[in-house]
């Protein structure tokens, strides 16, 4: 089972299960099985200044410094982008999320997406759109998932994700490049969009543990009660430090 890396656990988070709109429909109606959690993760605190990192080489392409801001908050909704939500401990998934493909692209001397979520069984397509070499080096603890040279105009490099876990994504040629890849062995996860919203479908009824992770805001653990059928709205407010 996927666990987020050890990090300060926030107990004071405000978690509002604001509305339970359980609607009962006859099974013949529905193509969707199970229930859905929707919600938004918000933060009202002040945002720390972005980090400026020195670029050690390839200044013509990467610039002299890169700016890293892991905390991206939408101005009007206060929604936080790139928060990963994981509903844990569901034994038998009721839906199979399509075992599709996810991209991880080297572009502008950064990994896109910077925080990626994949499911075991999916193919991760490693790409390079920069006019120079990158080496995509992905590790899970002491084990290496892959370290491949991505040459200029090279073909994309597909890799099957075989193990769940929290992975660090780096390029040894450009040490300032950092990304994360989180692999799950179940379909009940999501990552928030630019307005902090997320949606997880096909959940079986029950009381489930959920963990919510953001790179610098930390991890929140909570429980959600999922009805037989319908939509639960879970809104999470990260505490201001």
């Amino acid at each position: 089972m996927q666990k987020f890396p050890p990090m300060r656990l926030l107990s004071t988070a405000v978690i509002i299960v604001s509305s339970i709109m359980a609607f009962w429909v006859s099974p013949s109606f529905g193509d969707s099985v199970g229930s859905t959690i929707v919600g938004r993760v918000t933060f009202h605190g002040s945002i720390p200044p972005a980090q400026q990192l020195n670029v050690n080489k390839d200044h013509d392409i990467c610039g002299l410094t890169v700016t890293v801001q892991p905390l991206i908050v939408d101005e009007s909704t206060h929604g936080v982008r790139d928060v990963v939500i994981n509903v844990e401990g569901i034994e038998s998934p009721t839906v199979e999320r399509d075992s599709g493909v996810e991209d991880l692209t080297n572009k502008g001397c950064a990994f896109i997406p910077r925080i990626g979520v994949v499911r075991v069984g999916q193919i991760l397509n490693l790409r390079n759109e920069d006019p120079m070499l990158h080496n995509t080096h992905i590790r899970m603890g002491k084990r290496t998932f892959v370290n491949v040279a991505q040459v200029v105009d090279g073909r994309l490099i597909p890799r099957l994700v075989t193990e769940p876990g929290f992975m660090s994504v780096n390029c040894d040629k450009h040490r300032f490049m950092q990304g994360y890849l989180i692999a799950f062995d179940h379909p009940f996860f999501a990552i928030t969009d630019a307005t902090g919203q997320f949606r997880i479908e096909g959940l079986p009824p029950g009381r489930w543990k959920a963990s919510i992770w953001h790179e610098i805001l930390g991890t929140i653990q909570t429980e959600v009660t999922v009805p037989e059928r319908g939509e639960v709205s879970v809104n999470v407010e990260y505490p201001t430090p």
């Binding site: 080496n135 995509t136 080096h137 370290n147 040279a149 040629k173």
Partner: peptide
């Protein structure tokens, strides 16, 4: 593996 030296098999 374990060092920066990448695989060039795909290249």
């Amino acid at each position: 593996i374990g060092t920066p030296m990448p695989s060039y098999a795909d290249a």
